[in-house]
Write a protein that binds this DNA or RNA. Structure first.
Lengths: 183, 183
DNA sequence: CTAGAATATTTCACAGTGATATATATGTCA
DNA sequence: TGACATATATATCACTGTGAAATATTCTAG
C-alpha cells in the first residue's frame, strides 16, 4: 500500500461527474477543490496515461477532435473509485514552515515574529471570507444540487470555516502572548 | 525561489542546537517536531551532502569516529538560517483525502461516511491528549528552558491543541448533520 | 486584424516519501 | 557466555508530487 498515486482518485472522482480533458481536471482542482486538493499538469498527464493503460478511464469515442484528448471513467474505474472510498484514510505527512520558524526563531526579533503571524492571520481571514461566500452561494442560489449532495458540500465548506477561524484565533492569541513578553 | 529544499532549514535549525548525525536529525524530527514537521532518511542524507558542498555545515572535527558522521552548523549556515527566518512563508499545497472522499463519496453509504468521520475524530482526540500532555510537561517540570523559549514552544503546542479541537468539533457537527439526513 | 488571454499538452529538474538493505553496537535474558 | 532483539547509522530505490517553462492553438476584445 502506502505509496499510491492519489491523483488517480481525484481524477476518477472528477471524471465520474463528466468526461474531461487534462486541462479541465486541472481547472476543476483549482476552482472547486481549491484549498483542499492540489493537482498539477506535471502529474495529471502522466497519470492519465497510466490510467488508460490500466483501463480505469478511456478516450471519449468520437471526440478526439483537434488536439483535445477527452477522458471518461470506465466501469472498472467506477469500481476502483468505490473501493478507494471504503479504504482507511492515511494520515498525511505534515510540514509546517511556520511552526519550524517559531521553534527555531530564537534570534528572530519579537517584532518580526509578530509580523509573520499577522501575515498568516490575514491569509486565514481571506480564506474565511472565501468559504463563507461559497457557503452563501450554495444556500441562496437554490442550485440544481440535491439535498444530500449539499449536506456533503456544506460539510467541506464548514471544515474550511472552522479551520480558518481556529487559525485566526491562534494567531491572535500568540501575537498577544508575544506582546506581553518583555525584550 | 519557490522550489527549495526546506529540509535544509529544518537541519540547520536542529544543528544550531547541537551537532548531530543524520540519524539524530531524523529522531529529533520524530520526537520534538512530531506532528508539524516530517523528515525521512531518503531526503536527509542527500541533503546533508549538498549542504556540506555548499558550506552550510561541516563535519565535526576529530569526531569522525567509527562510521558515525557528525555535522555542525557553520557561520555561513547560521547566516542562511537567519535569512530564511526573514523570508515570507510559502503557503503549502494541500491534499486532503478526507475532503476528497466527502466530495466524491456520493455512493458511499451514510453509515460508512459516519464511520470514516468518527475514526478521524479519534485520531484528533489522541492528538489533543498528546499536545495537552506535552504542555503539562512544559509547565510542570520547570525545565532548563528559558522563559522566552517556553513562550514559543507553548505557542506551537497551542496550535496543535486549537487545531485538534477544531477538527473534533467539525467531525462531531458533520456526523450530526449526516444522522439527520434521511435515507 | 492583431495582441493577449484562455485552452491544451509535454517535458524537466527537483522535492519529498517510505520501504528496504546493510552493518555495527548495545542491552538483556537464559 | 551465547543468542537474540533492539537501537544506531547510512545508503539506495522506485515512486509520488511540485512548479515552471516550452510549445502550439483557439478565442476574444479593442
Amino acid at each position: 500500500m502506502s505509496l499510491v498515486n492519489k491523483s488517480i482518485y481525484a481524477i476518477l472522482g472528477i471524471l465520474s461527474i463528466q468526461p474531461s480533458t487534462g486541462y479541465d481536471i486541472k481547472r476543476y482542482s483549482d476552482k472547486v477543490l481549491s484549498g483542499f486538493w492540489n493537482e498539477n499538469f506535471g502529474h495529471i498527464y502522466p497519470t492519465l496515461k497510466k490510467m488508460i493503460e490500466s483501463g480505469l478511464i478511456e478516450n471519449v469515442p468520437g471526440e478526439v477532435e483537434d488536439r483535445k484528448i477527452k477522458y471518461a471513467i470506465t466501469e472498472k474505474g467506477k469500481g476502483e473509485l468505490k473501493k478507494w472510498l471504503s479504504e482507511e484514510i492515511q494520515t498525511p505527512a505534515v510540514r509546517s514552515e511556520l511552526m519550524l520558524k517559531l521553534l527555531f526563531g530564537n534570534d528572530m526579533s519579537k517584532e518580526a515574529t509578530i509580523d509573520m503571524l499577522s501575515k498568516q492571520k490575514d491569509i486565514h481571514e481571506e480564506n474565511l471570507i472565501k468559504y463563507l461566500t461559497m457557503q452563501q452561494e450554495l444556500t441562496c442560489e437554490g442550485s440544481q444540487i440535491t439535498a444530500k449532495r449539499s449536506v456533503y458540500y456544506n460539510a467541506i465548506l464548514r471544515k474550511g470555516i472552522i479551520n480558518s477561524a481556529a487559525n485566526i484565533e491562534w494567531c491572535e492569541e500568540t501575537i498577544e502572548s508575544l506582546k506581553k513578553l518583555k525584550g
